[in-house]
Design a protein around this nucleic acid. Structure first.
Lengths: 243, 243
DNA sequence: ACCTGAACACCGTTCAAGT
DNA sequence: ACCTGAACACCGTTCAAGT
């Protein structure tokens, strides 16, 4: 009966299984018990390799951070930062739950600190003062992980299920009602593809939106650096950073 | 025995109680059962006024959104947006759990849509094209709710408990070790107050950081508007929005 | 050193019943 | 119309025990 001797559990196997199980069944369905079951092991066996569920989640984040490319060599700061952020974005996008989990983590593990430190270093190497780098890091915030704060969450199940049953005329009536109550939202939501060949609309190009905001920030950072911005002067002057 | 007849429950009372209970005990400790207990009622009594816990959370968000001031009248778009965002920030900051809950909501309730619609309207009224407004709304993202993506979460309990027991020399050694491994993080973290009179450091001025990023974006938006930016041209041109 | 089993103190939510 | 009670199918985690 001992023939099919189970492979020994270890931290790496646990984390790897957790990541792919979360990919499969979603993060809210990932429980210690469900994960144990997946590994053909009793729930408490996991606790030898991970102190508790929090540490499991921390470990899952470390796995993902490990997928982010190191900074490219011999590039100016701007394209180095840009490429790194886009690499982080690619890594995080492979796992639909990653964003939520990264944001929920309060303790920073070494792998995360490594990433942040080297990210910070790209600005310092690019001629940014320590002071400006500090504020720039705050401003870029979650974008260093490759995500924007979503306005409407496209990943989750939409408010109402897609067409399917709803007849076209009902949908039109719904849109009209929406447009009456929320004219501005409807205007920008349907703005896309208006002057384009595609007609179906409702496809926000997430990647475009992400790069739009990222480049806006990077350009702003550059301008401040070139102006010799300091927080001291900004505080004295009050108002806008670029003022 | 019926003398102290309980006040009738209603949706508003449930939501109000949920908000202040979350303020007290934290959002992760807020359960339907705990809330029921607070209202001197059996858990299932809540389900007459709220379909399930998700709807309870949606309702809590609506409560908070109700605290945001309407747009100021007779102001240019920039200061109108700015003041509104800062008002949202004040409202959300009254409830430590608000940020997390707002971000987790996937269905938008009417109150939330109202806020987003009127927020969008401030840009349109300010002479922004529908196209640019669309991207601008994405770029401002969570900042319309008054929060930045935090780098280090100051609200949660810090990694190690504050000094308390740790002797000064140990703390110094720890900092040295940190500085050896994460030189850039330590540099920007200790940059503050260097040329200032306060000495204790470690006080990031959250409000300053928030306004720094906000103004950077608002200035960027203005520049694009004045340039007659269109996403069409940007896509054709590739790269940076301000290019 | 690693895994197990039973138990504890919780969850959200159903269903059928009470007033 | 509103509230109750008991039950179901889950959680994360403890403790003491097994190999």
């Amino acid at each position: 009966m001992d023939v099919e001797r189970r492979v020994r559990l270890n931290r790496d196997r646990v984390l790897r299984a957790a990541v792919s199980l979360a990919d499969e069944i979603g993060i809210e369905a990932l429980s210690m018990r469900r994960l144990a079951q997946e590994l053909d092991v009793v729930p408490m066996a996991l606790y030898k390799h991970v102190q508790n569920k929090e540490e499991l989640l921390d470990g899952m984040v470390e796995m993902i951070v490990g997928e982010i490319d190191p900074p490219v060599r011999d590039a100016d700061w701007k394209s180095a930062v840009r490429q790194r952020v886009l690499s982080a974005r690619r890594a995080l996008q492979r796992h639909p739950w990653a964003r939520q989990v990264v944001e929920s983590r309060t303790t920073k593990t070494p792998a995360v600190l490594d990433y942040m430190d080297s990210f910070t270093g790209m600005f310092l190497a690019g001629g940014f003062s320590v002071d400006l780098t500090h504020h720039v890091m705050h401003a870029i915030g979650g974008r260093m992980w490759g995500f924007t704060q979503e306005l409407f969450d496209d990943t989750a199940s939409p408010q109402a299920e897609p067409s399917a049953e709803v007849p076209a005329e009902v949908r039109a009536a719904m849109l009209e009602q929406m447009a009456a109550r929320y004219p501005n939202i409807v205007a920008i939501a349907t703005s896309m593809d208006h002057d384009d060949d595609s007609v179906v609309s409702h496809g926000c190009d997430d990647q475009f939106e992400f790069e739009f905001a990222l480049d806006l920030l990077l350009d702003g950072f550059e301008r401040l650096r070139d102006q010799g911005w300091t927080s001291r002067a900004a505080r004295r002057g009050g108002g806008s950073p670029a003022a």
